[in-house]
Amino acid sequence: MTAKTMQTQATGIPPEAERVLKQIETKQAMYRRKMTIAFAFLIVFMITALIVLGLDFKFMLKWLPFVLAGSGYTFLVAFLAISLACILAVVGALGRLSKNPVFNSIATSYVSLIRGTPLLVQVYMWYLALPQIGKALEGYGIPGIQRILTLPAVPAGILALGVCYGAYMTETVRAGIQSIKIGQTEAAKALGMNATQTMKRVIFPQALRVIIPPVSNEFIAMIKDSSLVSLMGVWELSYRAIKVGRRHFQSLEMLIMVAFIYWIMCIVLQFCQEKIEKRMARGDRRIS
């Protein structure tokens, strides 16, 4: 695109300047070619490495469908958890920015507590410790609460991941909202908008653009952290791969396979992220 605009401007430009423009253009073309070659080398290297290692590709192919069958859980957990996390993040960010002491203190403690404890502990907390809380509550005369709080593995995993990532994303969303200049709020107020309208129509749409890259980061991390639900005996991707690998003493094959599956999923997500970012960039001079 840059080359084209240069050419249109080049009409009527002195020949020596044209030569400079040509040079710049060839330099860019060279750079692109070198990049392609470098990537090609890396891919070839990777494939050679896999062959040299003497991987049993037949074995991998045989178990691929079985492992892939676990990707449904991975997607289900990751998708529902990220949805929960997004909702918590927006509510949490509004709380962190709120002047209401109750709302603000709850949001601040939520972020502090969840960010300050390991995800692993939280997962077990939802799965193993919550029923005990239910039992205690039942002792105080709330009938049936223990059964409600005894969660199956998948919902417990979704809650654990969603609540945990919600805390991290709260800070992302808060930073995004605060990155919008005060003039935008003032312009909205001057038009007579109330706080909700200002947030919904003016601040949040602009903040969204800022927070898409870090939120995609979280989403990609979440896809991989979803393997933590295997701790509770859910037969998702990595659990299946590790199980099969151990039983047949071919862990290398299975681990490489499952790693590739995760990688491909994340590449797809990254692609989606780029698409969304391009869409959101409308009206931004740096890109359009």
């Binding site: 200049k181 003039g183 935008q184 003032e186 312009a187 909205a188 107020k189 001057a190 038009l191 007579g192 109330n194 003016v202 749409p205 602009q206 653009r209 409308r282 009206g283 931004d284």
Partner: peptide, 22 residues
């Protein structure tokens, strides 16, 4: 306050147009 703001227009030094809208 909202009523007063509806009755007054304000132009700022830095324009403050909404950049995500046409």
């Amino acid at each position: 306050i909202l009523d007063i703001r509806k009755k007054t227009g304000m132009c700022f030094q830095s324009f403050n147009l909404f950049p995500h809208m046409t």
